[in-house]
Design a protein around this nucleic acid. Structure first.
Lengths: 210, 210
DNA sequence: ACGCAGATTCGCACTCATTGCAAATTCGCA
DNA sequence: TGCGAATTTGCAATGAGTGCGAATCTGCGT
């Protein structure tokens, strides 16, 4: 890794840290990009060569997560069907999310619930991730899934978990308690995916299809 | 309806029309709110007393759709289980959307695919709608569904259809082929519903997705 | 060590969305 | 007709995001 790359990575991290700090202290809307840049000792203009917008600061590493899921799909066992593989891949993402202990993750969760712009960006990122995952899933099971079915299956899984989680975390005053969040995530996955587990033969999702 | 209300509704519609026109002619990003307001003969400042942002212009009537779905849920038949009711409710929304013939709907579809800000807002609106629908679904089936399960079911359903459509509509050829869209939606609903239909022991719903 | 080509940083000026404020205008109704 | 409430707007700010170009770095020879 060249000096340039290292320096860049370091500044990037500094920006995320500074932003986390400021968002927590002053609030998201109250913190300007100029503030963040200043706190990281770079010019305001330069900020945009690291992140395209203020929201992006809250979703660094999103690439890595998708990559992890894709790998999980690639390494499927011989006996696994699409649903099992997908389930395993999504669990992986959820576990990585165990960095839920990280300040950033907790902050993100709070801001997603309270700042529309953040929620919007979050949904978009999730949607893109789904898409990518579905693409790989279809590739891994060319016999059983075409792109549309793979997307439907992925969308159903992720949609179920996301929605369940939304409800669970809504009343939760326990957002500050990482353990409680963990618990909620686990419960959401359980509730959302139990039906699939009970229906093990999801091998040919598209029945009569014309 | 008072004069005030009528006038307000008229102006609102004028704004939507003007915006549709301008977005189609000059593009979304190229059209400023000032342009739209001017085209509708109101002050730029006043625009914000009709729509909170530029994106909102593309999603008027979203309330009405949710209301329609909620009504569909309320009017469930005696033999219907949660999945069937939900299916019927969402189909209702989809049909209303058959105003797909409307310029606005077509434009919206295009902009959702090409303008991130619009996509983000669209996802957010859909998410809120899901939430509301799930709430009502849980209310309609207090015995069989708690809020979390209802959210999961709804999320699975909507997520499946949305994702399937996304993939399908990406190959822009399908845009003109309503049959292909119908087929994709059916397949997506199949995928999403499969695991749920067998869950409640009391039900033996018809396979044909009614 | 020296110097250059390409990459990075960043100040400056701009366009726009969005908001608070307060004056001007309009509406519904007594 | 005239008043109080709601609506419309102009004005001024703030802050995000972008294009441009000059000033600085860095990596890589020589």
């Amino acid at each position: 890794m060249s000096l340039r790359e290292r320096k860049r990575a370091r500044i990037r991290q500094t920006l995320v840290d500074a932003a986390t700090e400021l968002f927590e202290r002053d609030g998201y809307d109250e913190t300007t990009i100029a503030d963040i840049a200043a706190a990281a000792d770079i010019g305001t203009r330069t900020f945009f060569s690291y992140f395209a917008s203020k929201e992006e600061l809250l979703f660094p590493e999103s690439d890595a997560r998708v990559r992890a899921a894709v790998e999980a799909i690639a390494s499927r066992g011989p006996g696994e069907g699409p649903a099992e593989v997908l389930l395993r891949a999504l669990r992986k993402v959820g576990d990585d999310n165990d960095e839920m202990a990280s300040r950033l993750a907790a902050l993100r969760l709070r801001l997603i619930r309270t700042v529309p712009a953040v929620r919007g960006r979050g949904l978009q990122i999730q949607f893109e991730a789904q898409r990518e995952i579905a693409r790989n899933l279809a590739e891994a099971f060319p016999e059983q899934l075409d792109e549309v079915s793979a997307a439907a299956l992925t969308g159903a899984f992720v949609g179920a978990v996301t929605s369940a989680l939304q409800v669970l975390l809504d009343d939760a005053d326990a957002l500050d308690d990482p353990a409680a969040v963990q618990e909620a995530v686990r419960r959401a996955t359980d509730v959302a995916l139990t039906p699939w587990l009970r229906a093990p033969a999801a091998e040919q999702p598209a029945r009569g299809t014309a």
